[in-house]
Amino acid sequence: MSDERPPTRYTEYHPRWYRPRVSTWWWLARWPYLKFILREISSVFVAWFVVVLLLQIRALSRGPEAYAAFERWLQNPLIVLLNLITLFFVVFHATTWFNLAPSAMAIRFGGKRVPDLLIVGTNYAAWAAISLVVAWFLVRS
């Protein structure tokens, strides 16, 4: 009998309780839950971009022909579609985590907690700055 239930210790000798079950579809019940699940799923897409990047580096190290083949592969409509979806999820991943950053970091400065907006803002600013540097490199070449 005891192994049907989680090992939480409830009061003994108590009248019958009703124990509601958690539905398998609990994450569809509310938008914040769905958003949370999407955020978790987004990690799969982040991993996919890492794989693409590794393939790109491998192609690069194998010389111009391999790289041209890699670029052709990138132009495959299916891959383009997949990468578009991935881009959406990666942006979703980044923004949701940036927005959550302040609650994970209680940074204090001069005896006061740094306002949330400043922490989020710094994250976005760093993102924008790094993107600009990358873009500058791409445009220059």
Partner: peptide, 22 residues
């Protein structure tokens, strides 16, 4: 897993999600 709903429903603005991540 940082769902973050605990902080949203807290009537006393305790921010338990923040406490956990910190």
């Amino acid at each position: 897993t940082f769902v973050g709903e605990c902080t949203k429903v807290c009537p006393k603005h305790v921010d338990p999600a923040g406490a956990i991540q910190q």
